[in-house]
Design a protein around this nucleic acid. Sequence first.
DNA 1: ATTGTAATTGCAACTGTTTTGCATTAAATT
DNA 2: AATTTAATGCAAAACAGTTGCAATTACAAT
Lengths: 126, 126
Amino acid sequence: MGVVRTTKTVRLVTQFFDTYEHAIGVLDLVEKFKEEMNRSTIYRILDRLEDEGKVHSFLGANGLKHYAKCKDCNHKEHVDVHPHFQCTNCGMVECVAYEIKIPALPDKSVEQAQLLLTGICANCKD
Amino acid sequence: MGVVRTTKTVRLVTQFFDTYEHAIGVLDLVEKFKEEMNRSTIYRILDRLEDEGKVHSFLGANGLKHYAKCKDCNHKEHVDVHPHFQCTNCGMVECVAYEIKIPALPDKSVEQAQLLLTGICANCKD
DNA sequence: ATTGTAATTGCAACTGTTTTGCATTAAATT
DNA sequence: AATTTAATGCAAAACAGTTGCAATTACAAT
Ligand SMILES: [Mn+2]
Ligand SMILES: [Mn+2]
Ligand SMILES: [Zn+2]
Ligand SMILES: [Zn+2]
């Protein structure tokens, strides 16, 4: 796999993330693109886009993988680490621009912190 | 289901949590008790103990459910909310006695915060 | 433009995890 | 001891994600 090919399906998923401002669960993506591509293709494309630093993933409250576009990441490193918010009413999931301060724990070296916030989103509050 | 029965299997799982100081993944529990009870029984007992406020659950880094005993919870509410730590080397998972400060987000009401810390545990550091 | 190549896809089968329906067992009440 | 019904075991189903392989297709070379 020396060259990387910009196939029709890769383009579709890329374009989706270009304009989508929230995060989306992998099953919703499978559903959304079920006419355009096979579900294994989606999983493979998401893996690839994540490797390339174009999207990042995290686990939602249900344990399902969610994806959102990255800001300044590349295939070397994901610098875009932040909490995520999930609305328990409408299911909306999004990235939160907020720096997680990793607490120091005695005798341990904490390398990563994953923070998932749940509650009611702006839309659902009214 | 008016009465609640203290069966042999419920007693076994309860006793396990009485003495186990860490958190444990559901599949490890299935494995550990595979001679004593059926898989579905474990899942049902864990649901029940969680309802009763005797154990609490959270998702590990792999998205799999983990369980640990509760301190001061009951069937009305789980007051025992805290971060968890998972060692990426040995897989050990434990509760972290540390108060999560829930960040206020504009236009949203954040009700819950789930924080998972990953890194190297005391045992694995030496 | 045509051809050669290998990266990518579709498909169907498979793996791993959790849930479910139902007949059977056994804990608690009488 | 008999009765009641909560809890269990089992096997099948549901669900999410992965894999092997043949067919397709992007794209570099000609
Ligand atoms: Mn994000
Ligand atoms: Mn805990
Ligand atoms: Zn909402
Ligand atoms: Zn360790």
